[in-house]
């Protein structure tokens, strides 16, 4: 088949097929014992707690900057009262999930890719396999479950911090009470804004976990492949976050 396709396109298709099969294996193995509850909890901590600081700082700055940028644009029209509504819709529907998703693809995705990649290279995964301890359940299911459930929480948290950042920026130039700010936000945000945005964050989380695990788990021999696994985890999962986002927007616009 590779004779009929350009090598790079063929490689892309092989990669997509590999990730697809890896995802299927995740769902097939998810309900099968052994259930690695303790390791899953540990991974929740790894993914959630350790990314909290980074996600908070990014979220805060995004909200802050977005409000600061909006003020001079809307001020000539006397429309500064619309700023809370504008930034909240922007953050909750789009910027919060995508930016946090990308940050997590970088931090969490590369971590998973590098960790599993080095375990593969140093034969630790083979060692689990031959001692009859299912490494897929212990390493992959725990991590993917953790990213699928924690990254949405991180995104919701980052959205909240971004809204606070927006409030601070607005408070610098004009005097707005926090209750007025949030009441304006909740007046303008509808269920239709929040639900699709939250649903796509689960997709982001799953993608980041599965791509990182796939790249690490299938790393070749040699130290170099650890770097490649980490690097390509970030590149592929970032790209997929953007692609999922585009698809999610199209579906949301059709449904809501």
């Amino acid at each position: 088949m590779d004779k009929f396709l350009p090598k790079s396109l063929f490689e892309i298709l092989v990669e997509i097929w590999g990730i697809y099969n890896f995802s299927l294996k995740y769902f097939k193995n998810f309900f099968k014992p052994p259930y690695e509850i303790n390791e899953t909890i540990k991974q929740f901590f790894q993914v959630g707690n350790k990314s909290l600081g980074l996600v908070s700082i990014t979220g805060f700055i995004i909200g802050f900057v977005l409000a600061l940028q909006a003020i001079p644009t809307l001020e000539p029209f006397g429309a500064t009262s619309l700023i809370p509504a504008m930034i909240s819709i922007g953050i909750i529907r789009e910027i919060g999930p995508v930016i946090t998703g990308l940050i997590c693809a970088g931090k969490v995705g590369s971590g998973i890719g590098a960790e599993l990649g080095s375990m593969k290279v140093t034969e630790q995964i083979d060692a689990m396999e031959v001692s009859a301890c299912n490494p897929f359940n212990f390493l992959v299911i725990t991590r993917v479950t953790a990213t699928t459930l924690m990254i949405p929480l991180l995104i919701i948290f980052a959205d909240t911090v971004a809204l606070l950042g927006g409030y601070l920026a607005l408070n610098i130039v004009s005097d707005v009470s926090i209750s007025l700010y949030f009441s304006q936000i909740f007046d303008n945000i509808k269920f239709d804004d929040v639900l699709p945005a939250v649903i796509k964050t689960f997709l982001f989380g799953f993608t980041i976990g599965i791509v990182g695990s796939y790249k690490g788990y299938t790393a070749d021999k040699g130290t170099e492949s650890v770097g490649i696994a980490a690097n390509s985890s970030v590149v592929i999962s970032s790209l997929m976050v953007i692609i999922w986002d585009m698809i999610a927007v199209q579906i949301t616009n059709i449904l809501f």
Binding site: S118, M119, T122, E123, Q124, D126, A127, M128, E129, V130, S131, A132, N134
Partner: peptide
């Protein structure tokens, strides 16, 4: 997996879980 429970494999590097 059942057969592997009866086999011990010592890796060249030790393959300890880091």
């Amino acid at each position: 997996q059942d057969i592997r429970k009866k086999i011990g494999f010592v890796f060249q590097s030790g393959a300890l879980y880091d």
